[in-house]
Design a protein around this nucleic acid. Sequence first.
DNA 1: GTGAAAGCGCTAACAA
DNA 2: TTGTTAGCGCTTTCAC
Lengths: 342, 342
Amino acid sequence: MSSSSSSSSDAPGLRVTVSDVAAAAGVSRATATRALKGAGRFAPETQERILAEAERLGYVPNTMAAELAAGRTGTVGLMLRDASNPAYGLLFSRLQDEAHQRGLDLLTVTIGADEQGAKQVGALHRLLGMRVAGLIVATGGITTAQLEPFADQVPILRAGRAETSGRIHSAHYDDAEHGRMLASHVAFLGHRRVVVLAGDEEASFPEHLRALAMRETLSDAGVDVDLVSTGARPDEGVAEALSRVRAGATAVMCASDYRQLAVMRALRSAGLSVPGDVTVTGCDGILPGADLLGLTTVRIPVEQVAAAAVETMQGLLTSESDAPVRRGFAGELVPGTTAGAV
Amino acid sequence: MSSSSSSSSDAPGLRVTVSDVAAAAGVSRATATRALKGAGRFAPETQERILAEAERLGYVPNTMAAELAAGRTGTVGLMLRDASNPAYGLLFSRLQDEAHQRGLDLLTVTIGADEQGAKQVGALHRLLGMRVAGLIVATGGITTAQLEPFADQVPILRAGRAETSGRIHSAHYDDAEHGRMLASHVAFLGHRRVVVLAGDEEASFPEHLRALAMRETLSDAGVDVDLVSTGARPDEGVAEALSRVRAGATAVMCASDYRQLAVMRALRSAGLSVPGDVTVTGCDGILPGADLLGLTTVRIPVEQVAAAAVETMQGLLTSESDAPVRRGFAGELVPGTTAGAV
DNA sequence: GTGAAAGCGCTAACAA
DNA sequence: TTGTTAGCGCTTTCAC
C-alpha cells in the first residue's frame, strides 16, 4: 500500500514521528505537518492519505517539540491549593470545565495548603518552565511578591481571592460582602453578643476578610463582638468560643463551614443545642449534605468566579490590553436551621 | 562585574536561555548546563559563578526543550475524574502529596464524569503528547481498550478501580469487600428485607461492584433483596427505593454516600425517620460532616490507594519488571446512627 | 574541567 | 501545492 522508503512496520505509537508519517505517505515533513493540523495549503487527497497513515501508525504528536518549535504554548498553567477541600475541588472542576469549553488547555500543579514557600515557588517554576501562555493562581500560599516578577512576561490571574498588585488580575469572591451578609442576618435575628471565629490573616486570608467584615457589620448594628482569631485547623479556637458562649454569647459566627462543623461537634458533646442554646453560622456552602445539617452559611459563587477567571484569561491571551482586570463576586445567603432568633 | 560579550542587562526572566547564562559567566553552554544541574564535571568555583549569574538573570529553564533534548520526561501524567466529588478531590490531593514526597512530578488533566469518549481520549493524548514517563488513571471514564495500546510504551496504572487487562497495573479499592462489610452489618442488625440502591454498571462501576457484593452477602444471610439500579445522578431511583420501603423493606443500602444523602432527604420530606422507620447506609466516608449526620458508611482507604499507586508507579519507572502489579485495599466500617436494629 | 558539534521532533518562512 | 532550510533551547557524546 505505501510506497515509501525506510519505514518499519508495526511501529510503536509514541515513537512515531512526523517524519515516519510523511515517509509512509510519500510526502515531506512540512506537508505532513500542515495536513495533520489542517493549516496552510495542501491537496485534500494528500491530507487524506497522510491522516490515514498517521492513524495507522498510531501517531501521537510530540507536544513539547511542537511548542518549542512554535515558540508558544497552547496551555494555561493552574496552581491549585490542595483539592481535599471541597471548595477548591469544585473550583478546580469548574475552572477545568470553563477552560475546556473555551478551548484552553489547563495544566495543573497543586501545593498542599501548608507547604513551605520553597515548594510553592518550585511549583511556580515548574509551570513557568513549561512556558505556559498564562497562569491562573488558585492558592493563597503564593504571594504577590513571588508572582510579580513574572507578571509582565505572562498574564497572571488570581482566582478566588482578591489581588492588590497592579500587574496581576483577579476573579475573586467578595468575602467582605459574605461576612456582611451573614452578620446582618445574625444581627437581624436579634443576637446582641456574638463570637466571631476565624483563622488569622496568616492562616487564611479569606477567613480573615470575612471575620473583619462580620465584626464591623455587627458593631455597626450595636452588637457586642468577641473576635477569636486562631490558626488554620478548624478545631482551633473552638474551646475558646465555647467559653465565650458560656459567658453569655448567643451566637458563634464561623468564617468557614469547616469551623462551623467543628463548633457543632463541640456544642453537641457539651450538651448544648443548636439553635436552641446557640446560633451557629459558617461560610462556603459547598459541602454536600449541608442542607441536611441545616447549616446557615453563604454559598460562595464558585461557578461565577471560575467562569470569570477563564474568560478573563482568554481575553488577556488574545488582546494586548494591559489594564488590570478585577472582578469580585458575592454569593448567596443560605439561611439554615442552625441560626435562630434570640 | 561580568566580563562577557553581548549580554543585555535587565533581561526578561523567561526569555533568558542557558546561552545567556553561559555568556554572562564566560563559559560555554555545555558547561553551564552541567553546572546548573550539578551533573557531570565542572570546577566548583565555576559552578558558583554560573549559579550566581542564573540567579541574577532570573533564569527559568525551559522544561520542554530540556526534556525534548534529553529524550525523557521527569513527569508522570495523571488523568483525574472531576474533582468536585470530594472522594476524588481527596484522592487527587493524596496522590499529589505522595508523588511530591517521592520526587515525582505530576501533570494533571481532568475530565468531567459525564464527558464523551472523544474528550477522554483527547485528554489521554494530551498527556501522551507530552511524553510523560508514566500514566496514572484515576477515572473510570477511560476504558481498558483505550489504554492498552500504549501499555507497552509507558507504564500505566489505574488508581481507585481494579483493572482487568494484563498489561495495566492498579492500586484500587476493594469495593466488593466494602459491599460485604456493609451488608453484614445490616444483616446483623436483623433486617430481613433490604433495598440496594446503586448506579448501574455503565454509570458507576464501583457502585455496581459494591451493590453486587451487598446483594450476594445479604442473600447468603437469607435476607430479601430489592436491587434498584439506576443512572449516575444520586437522586435517581430514590422514589423507587421509597416505594419499596412502603412495601415493607426496612433498610436502604446505598452504593455511595451521595445516594445516602439523597435518600435521607427524601425520607425526611416523606416524614419517615432514620433509623426509626428506616435504616440507611452509604459508602465512601469522605464527606466532612458525615459524623454529624451520623452516616453509616465505609471509609474508603484513599490514603493507602494513593500511596500504593505512587509507590508502584515509581517502581515501574525504575525497574524493568513487567509483572502486572495489582493491589487492592479495603476500608473501615463506620457504624453511624442511620442504621438501627429492627 | 571545558568546549564544539550534533541533534531531540517539530514549525515556519521561503523557494520551487 | 509541496519541499528545503533553518532553527526553538537544551543535552550529551567526544575530543581538547
